[in-house]
Amino acid sequence: MDRKTLEYMEERAKKARLIVNKIDRLSKLDKQIESIRKISVYDQYVNGLFSLSSTDSNPSQNDKRLIEVIKPALRQMIADEVAKLEAELAEL
């Protein structure tokens, strides 16, 4: 093996490690979604736009319903991203 081949393989291994780390983080996040009880949305300037909560002393039924609708959507987004990353990994 020459130096150029080694550098090429090293670069691919670094990219692969980054992808695997992202997949691991997303998988961990996917497992945590089930316990979500509050969702807050912020703009790019970190100004709170709104919050939904099912843990307040008097939670809104709409908040609870919206949180239960958002959870599967988040899980699907994560699954799509993981599939994309796994395809990138396979290309390496």
Score class of each variant (00 low, 15 high):
37 R>V: 10
32 Q>S: 12
78 I>M: 01
61 Q>D: 15
63 D>M: 02
69 V>Q: 15
2 D>L: 03
68 E>T: 08
50 F>N: 03
62 N>V: 14
53 S>P: 01
47 N>C: 07
60 S>Q: 06
73 A>E: 14
73 A>P: 01
54 S>H: 03
79 A>I: 06
60 S>C: 06
46 V>E: 13
3 R>E: 15
73 A>F: 06
58 N>I: 09
91 E>L: 12
48 G>K: 14
48 G>S: 12
67 I>H: 03
23 I>A: 04
55 T>I: 14
89 L>D: 02
81 E>K: 05
26 L>Q: 00
26 L>E: 01
53 S>W: 00
86 E>D: 11
35 S>A: 07
38 K>Y: 05
11 E>Q: 09
30 D>S: 11
27 S>M: 13
54 S>G: 09
59 P>V: 01
33 I>C: 01
87 A>S: 11
91 E>N: 09
11 E>K: 14
10 E>V: 06
30 D>P: 01
15 K>P: 02
54 S>F: 03
70 I>C: 02
71 K>D: 00
19 I>H: 02
28 K>M: 12
7 E>D: 12
57 S>M: 14
4 K>I: 09
21 N>G: 09
87 A>N: 15
38 K>S: 13
82 V>E: 02
61 Q>K: 12
86 E>L: 09
22 K>R: 12
52 L>Q: 00
56 D>M: 10
55 T>N: 14
14 K>L: 07
60 S>D: 10
9 M>G: 08
30 D>I: 01
34 E>M: 04
1 M>D: 09
44 Q>K: 15
92 L>H: 07
42 Y>R: 03
63 D>C: 05
55 T>K: 14
29 L>M: 15
73 A>T: 09
14 K>N: 08
69 V>H: 10
67 I>F: 02
